[in-house]
């Protein structure tokens, strides 16, 4: 499974985005999930990580996505300590993912 990671530009992130990825890597099976940071065309899903709830980074078209916007996952508040586990839960339970429409 190829998991795209798309960051916003990071002008003033409210969360530690690198730490989120590190924790996610610890939770998800590294043999099963390949993290990609560029060229999302062949990705099965894309995790969009915005540093704050301005959420200026757009999801790539026609992809299953999960959007983190600061201390929110898909618009719902989430403490930073459990951000990675919440994102991982959504990834593992693929039925919750949204597909971006354009």
């Amino acid at each position: 499974m190829k998991l795209g990671i798309k960051f916003c530009g990071g002008c003033n992130p409210y969360i530690d985005r690198k730490l989120l990825i590190k924790r996610l890597r610890e939770i998800l099976d590294s043999e099963q999930y390949l993290f990609k940071y560029f060229n999302f065309d062949d990705c099965d899903m894309v995790l969009v990580i915005n540093g704050c709830n301005v959420a200026c980074s757009e999801a790539p078209p026609a992809k299953k996505t999960i959007t983190v916007s600061g201390l929110e996952v898909e618009g719902k508040a989430c403490r930073e300590e459990i951000l990675a586990s919440e994102v991982a839960r959504k990834i593992l339970n693929g039925s919750e993912l949204k597909t971006t429409q354009f």
């Binding site: 990671i5 960051f7 916003c8 530009g9 990071g10 002008c11 985005r17 690198k18 940071y37 560029f38 980074s57």
Partner: peptide, 8 residues
């Protein structure tokens, strides 16, 4: 850096 390239 993927974390900043959207701005960089």
């Amino acid at each position: 850096d993927p974390e900043y390239m959207e701005l960089g």
